[in-house]
Amino acid sequence: MKLLSSGRLPGLDLPHRSDLVASTELPPYELISTAFVLIFDRSSRLLLRYADLPTRGGWDLPGGHVELGETPTAAAIREVDEESGWPLRESDLTVLGWNRFSLEAPKPSGFRYPYPVGYLAYFVARLTTDGQPTTPAADSECSLADWLTPAEVRTRCADRRWLPLLDHQPE
């Protein structure tokens, strides 16, 4: 385990602390609220999705909420398919790390995440071929998906909390 950064999660307007950790092990499943995947192709390009949303808009990793009764791995696979159209299998994924968030105030009414501590899980998948064009599902909140070079990712995702994971990947 290695602490990569500490700070605040964008879009969470409650007093909290956020720690991004590179790790090959996940925290307890019941505390994981969301799962994301960094998918690299043979040319080291990363698959990102684009959404025109007020809080999660712009270029970002495919991923999202873990549904009731779903494992983080299953959620990651489902969300990647919905948001980018890219098919994955459980055997394609390796744990890359997690983001622990801790609320520093009472839980507000309707707060749907574990309290007072919750986690965002990050997985990585490496393709042996170059990524092909792909399209989000028709009913997705995402309008497009594309394979971006590391330089493009750093430019378009400069404010994303997961960005330090690009430099801390298991082999």
Rank of each mutant, 00 (worst) to 15 (best):
M1E: 10
K2H: 14
L3E: 14
L3A: 14
L4G: 09
S6F: 10
L9A: 13
G11H: 04
H16C: 11
R17G: 12
R17V: 09
S18V: 10
D19T: 09
T24I: 03
E25Q: 09
L26K: 02
E30K: 11
E30F: 05
E30N: 06
L31G: 02
T34V: 08
T34C: 12
T34F: 08
A35R: 03
F36I: 01
I39N: 05
D41H: 06
R42D: 11
S43P: 00
S43G: 08
R49V: 13
Y50S: 03
A51C: 06
A51Y: 02
A51K: 07
L53F: 04
L53V: 06
T55W: 11
R56Q: 13
G58M: 01
G63Q: 05
G63D: 04
V66D: 06
L68M: 11
L68F: 15
E70W: 15
T71V: 10
T73F: 05
A74T: 08
A76G: 13
R78Y: 01
E79F: 03
E82S: 06
E83I: 09
L88D: 06
L88W: 05
R89D: 08
R89E: 11
E90Q: 09
L96Y: 14
W98I: 02
N99I: 10
N99K: 05
N99W: 03
S102K: 13
S102T: 15
E104D: 09
K107V: 12
P108D: 12
P108F: 09
F111N: 04
F111I: 08
G118W: 14
G118A: 15
G118V: 12
L120H: 14
A121M: 01
A121Q: 00
F123G: 04
P133C: 12
T135R: 14
P136A: 08
P136V: 13
A137P: 00
E141D: 06
E141S: 10
C142R: 07
C142N: 09
S143D: 07
T149N: 07
E152S: 14
A158C: 05
R161C: 13
R161P: 12
L163C: 01
P164Q: 00
L166D: 02
Q169F: 02
Q169V: 07
E171D: 06
